[in-house]
Write a protein that binds this DNA or RNA. Structure first.
Lengths: 98, 98
DNA sequence: GTATTATTTCTGTATTTATCGAAATAATAC
DNA sequence: GTATTATTTCGATAAATACAGAAATAATAC
């Protein structure tokens, strides 16, 4: 992963409401959660929640798919893992590039 | 780790300049880096760099120690690992608390 | 068609964060 | 003591982000 991409993802996760949402989705796993389910857990105005969801989508960490009237949210686990790997990449190898 | 603590750490890492600094320190390992070394790599005004360093310190991810005229920066690897662990904790276990 | 449910988009305001020059502090050298 | 080096703190301005009410869209049910 590139630094700028990682920074965007981390900045999105760095908000308590969005991190709480992320944690719910981690627990939910591949099934994901409907926006309404997230709303029930986090209890915030619709517009605020939706704003946070759209932040998460622009980072790519969250993927939405419509199921009738319901929008279901899932994490992109591959991207999530790339992000976590990136943080510790080349640990303790020293500063020289390559 | 608690959600709010994790959110603070992630928000600090979510800035490109600070993430670049974090990555340098990951590569540097236990030796860490002097502020001046970081400055050389990142090339930004002293005051801006110092501001970012102080952000990293308030999160606890970065620890400074004085060595004569030089301030040396190291990562708190234990905290860093707790943060990474926290993100994926209880993955796919479902939403019920416990 | 109208009503209901689920969710987003719009729009504005409040708050936080980023940036950086100039002045200040801390340590060593002379 | 003065000078030099390393780094921070202060203070101001610019930019980004968060928040939430009201209106809009999308899908289903009737």
């Amino acid at each position: 992963m590139e630094l700028d991409k990682a920074a965007v993802c981390l900045s999105k996760l760095g908000n308590p409401a969005r991190l709480a949402m992320f944690r719910l989705l981690v627990k939910a796993g591949d099934e994901g959660l409907a926006v309404g389910d997230i709303q029930k857990e986090l209890d915030m105005p619709h517009s605020t929640l939706s704003h946070h969801i759209s932040h998460m989508m622009t980072s790519g960490l969250l993927i939405q798919s419509r199921e009738g009237r319901v929008l279901r949210c899932r994490l992109d686990y591959q991207l999530t893992n790339s992000l976590l790997d990136y943080l510790m990449e080349d640990c303790c190898k020293g500063l020289q590039e390559a």
